[in-house]
Design a protein around this nucleic acid. Structure first.
Length: 430
RNA sequence: GGAGAGGUCGCAUAGUUGGUCUAGUGCGCUGCACUCGAAAUGCAGUAUGGAUAUUUUUUCCAUCGAGGGUUCAAAUCCCUCCCUCUCCGCCA
């Protein structure tokens, strides 16, 4: 949710920014409800004050006082009912408003308006026709989709053998890399950032969460994305982000503990409703996939720099794997509702002859933390909302697709990226 | 799953025949005093959200796990839910 005070002070700017994000603008309505709500609140607080005075009066048994108090009770009850309605309406409208994009975000009306910031790494030239990842995986017996469909349905798979070893290698590689304070420090310096070099703490979060925190995360997209467990009011996470960004729900964090940087691993579940017929081959788009996710809680001062650090780390990881990629600055239309800005990284897939999305980095400013009530306490005891960032370290399925296609050999085997060999018990090919 | 106990202002605790609880006390923390300095001691302060005011100072409302209800008045009584702990059962 955005700040109502900001809307009051900047109604026209808010209208403009909401429209630039492709959302219907309801600012006049919100302001009207806000006024109504506040005048009712003042009225009710005044009545409550009178009631408190009467109740604390030692002569509360006096009949005149009693009758006044009873009148008051009626008035308060009826005004409170009205206020409740107005507030509900107000809250619904407030939550329709997306986070406002930073001025640096290009204005656009579709994903075609995303800006390619840079393309990094050389696309490997093959002296044979490169195969698609599922062709390679099938020939090597790395994926069993047929039996997965029998047991679980479409968009599920059994991953086998060296593909499993590759995934475990990637996980260890990421966790070790992000634990390296010296490396983080040098990346911060190379990018002219002025933030802490604190390493990321590895974390295994729960995979299920309750409705209330999920809603407060501004990330719950009930119909299309998320599986619900009706029996227990629980949802299967669609990303580790959901149980990470909610971790400090309703908490106040001492400033000296910030930034909090986590590298979380979780199996993610997505319904993928509305994607029938898209990416049906192989493991590109699955109902279940494993992902390593970075999550950062910081002050408002450093939120944007933390975002830049996360993108730099994503690029570092890609460069270490020597995978060609491009970096997209997403436009106002394509960054998510809670985002102030957002960057995607797309890896080059020689089999598909396309760049495909493997990473995203989202900066939510205080939009998530306002609903989640995650605050920080400064050394002078003042309190403010934290800023939240999340970013993919590796979507393991997709990064393995990129490795299979980019590292394929003429005989159909796969070379292991050099940096992963130590994590593969010295194995150099799959 | 069965039986029982319990959730109070950072921590620990008092408070449940409704009304000086507008939440006491201890610890912790902050400031001041005493001191060469410290300890000890004394004094003062010590939550969050919101409305209102504002160059500084305010005043008020709400919050005792959450939500409802009874009442002039609820930490206290009633209902629903959530969570924690103990014992038993089951279990990776």
């Amino acid at each position: 949710m955005i700040d109502i005070r900001f809307i009051r002070e900047n109604p026209d700017l808010t209208k403009l920014k909401v429209k630039q994000k492709g959302y219907e603008e309801n600012i006049d309505l919100v302001l009207e409800l806000d006024n109504k709500r506040r005048s009712l609140l003042i009225e009710i607080e005044d009545l409550r004050k009178k009631r408190n005075e009467l109740s604390h009066n030692k002569n509360y048994k006096d009949e005149q006082l009693l009758s006044n108090a009873k009148d008051l009770k009626q008035k308060i009850a009826s005004s409170e009912d009205t206020l409740k309605e107005v507030e509900q309406f107000f809250n619904v409208e407030m939550h329709k408003i997306p986070n406002l994009a930073l001025d640096s975000v290009p204005i656009g009306s579709s994903e075609k308006d995303n800006l390619i910031l840079r393309q990094v790494g050389e696309k490997k030239q093959f002296n044979f026709k490169p195969k698609l990842h599922h062709e390679l995986a099938n020939e090597l017996g790395l994926i069993d989709s047929v039996r997965a469909v029998k047991i679980s349905g479409s968009r599920f798979a059994y991953l086998k053998g060296d593909l499993v070893r590759l995934q475990l290698a990637l996980m260890n590689f990421v966790i070790n890399t992000l634990s390296d304070e010296t490396l983080i420090k040098s990346i911060i310096e190379n990018n002219n950032l002025n933030i802490s070099a604190k390493p990321f703490m590895p974390i295994l979060p729960p995979a299920l969460l309750k409705t209330e925190p999920y809603l407060a995360s501004s990330r719950l997209n009930m119909e299309e994305v998320t599986y619900k467990i009706e029996q227990d009011d629980l949802w299967l996470n669609a990303s580790a982000e959901h149980t990470l960004c909610t971790m400090y729900w309703n908490e106040i964090i001492p400033e000296k503990e910030l930034p909090i940087r986590y590298i979380g691993y979780a199996t993610s579940f997505r319904r993928e409703a509305g994607t029938y017929g898209k990416d049906t081959e192989g493991i590109f788009r699955m109902h279940q996939f494993d992902k390593l996710e970075m999550e950062v809680f910081s002050s408002a001062k450093t939120g944007l720099e933390e975002h830049k650090l996360l993108v730099a780390l994503q690029e570092h990881l890609m460069q270490k794997l020597e995978l060609p990629y491009q970096v997209l600055q997403k436009c106002t239309f394509d960054i998510g509702k809670p985002n102030a800005t957002g960057v995607d990284i797309e890896a080059w897939l020689p089999g598909q002859e396309k760049y495909r999305e493997t990473h995203t980095a989202d900066y939510m400013s205080d939009y998530q933390s306002r609903d989640l009530k995650i605050r920080l306490k400064n050394t002078d005891n003042s309190i403010e909302l934290v800023h939240t960032n999340d970013a993919t370290a590796f979507a393991l399925g997709r990064i393995m697709i990129a490795i299979l296609e980019n590292y394929q050999l003429v005989d159909g085997h796969i070379a292991v990226p050099e940096v992963l060999i130590p994590y593969m018990i010295g194995k150099t090919r799959i």
